[in-house]
């Protein structure tokens, strides 16, 4: 879109993680994102910088705006103001042009760089597991069907779901569905994976299998941004943790800081309540 009027500023607390190649440029820059729902000012200028091969965890109370922020990154929620740049492709929020064709096409291009995994899986129930994976690459990116199938099978193998390639989603457990959803996101070969509370809709007994897949992706250097309540995952896998409170990031830092030694009073309060409740 037009040249950005807002300058992206890297927070001093944002330092590249351990897997980031030396001298690499950020792969995702979200700058001063704001979002209004009617009169409700949900995001009040939240910014984030992510380098390739990093895993980012976003924590916060429900209603703090963390899911909204994540959904603004691929414009499923259109930001009221701000800029999102992924893989060098930037879209400036233009809330008065939401029906503009060119603007919609820019948003679609941005989405090709970032695939999302949802809390409620949102698998396509009328398609088999494998077709869930191949539908978008074939129809959106024009990948030859054979190639999409081969790659899709490789990703199903990776998430341990290759046995179920011809099943329909309704015949799978929640954990299995979420693993297929992750493979579906991977098969688009995005630059960034977005996870919106991927284990919150699961039975406690099924959380582990999904977390295990996500941890292995984090360790092999997939760039991931994860909104989660799973402290253990954030501690083990995240390069950086962002704590959101009332529409801004109140604290940014490594998990050893934000989770184990929070400096911000709001983070401390959240964690004490969260850990006591959990």
């Amino acid at each position: 879109m037009s040249t950005s009027r807002i300058q992206h500023v890297i927070d001093p607390a944002e330092t590249p993680g351990t897997l980031v190649p030396a001298g690499a440029d950020p792969i995702l820059k979200a700058t001063a994102i704001q979002k209004y729902f009617g009169e409700n000012h949900v995001l009040r200028g939240a910014s984030m910088t992510v380098w390739p091969r990093e895993t980012i965890a976003i924590l916060g109370r429900s209603g703090s705006g963390k899911s909204t922020f994540l959904r603004c990154l691929n414009f499923l929620e259109e930001p009221s103001a701000g800029v999102v740049e992924i893989g060098g492709f930037a879209v400036v929020a233009s809330p008065f042009e939401t029906r503009n064709k060119e603007y919609k096409e820019h948003i679609r291009q941005l989405r090709l760089n970032a695939s999302m995994v949802f809390q409620e899986f949102n698998l396509f129930p009328h398609l088999s597991v494998l077709s869930n994976l191949t539908e978008a690459p074939v129809h959106v990116k024009g990948v030859p069907h054979k190639e999409a199938v081969e790659r899709g099978e490789a990703y199903l193998e990776k998430v341990g779901m290759i046995d179920k390639r011809d099943e329909f989603p309704n015949r799978l457990s929640g954990g299995q569905r979420q693993r297929v959803a992750i493979a579906r996101a991977l098969n688009m070969e995005p630059k960034v994976l977005l996870f919106d509370e991927p284990t919150s809709a699961l039975d406690p007994s099924l959380v582990g299998e999904v977390i295990q897949v996500m941890e292995s992706l984090a360790h092999e250097g997939r760039t991931m941004i994860v909104v989660t309540h799973e402290m253990q995952f954030a501690r083990e896998a995240a390069d950086r943790v962002y704590f959101m409170d009332q529409g801004v990031f109140a604290e940014i830092g490594g998990p050893e800081q934000v989770i184990d030694n929070p400096r911000d009073e709001r983070t401390k309060l959240f964690l004490s309540r969260f850990l006591n409740a959990g």
Binding site: E120, A136, R184
Partner: peptide, 27 residues
């Protein structure tokens, strides 16, 4: 058809038309 279906299709980069013909209409 649940709105999550449209969201999933759009997050995969499908256009409005593809979302309708490939995802919403069959369901």
């Amino acid at each position: 058809v649940p709105p999550g279906q449209t969201e999933a299709a759009q997050s995969l980069g499908m256009t409005g038309r593809t979302t309708f013909t490939k995802i919403v209409l069959p369901q």
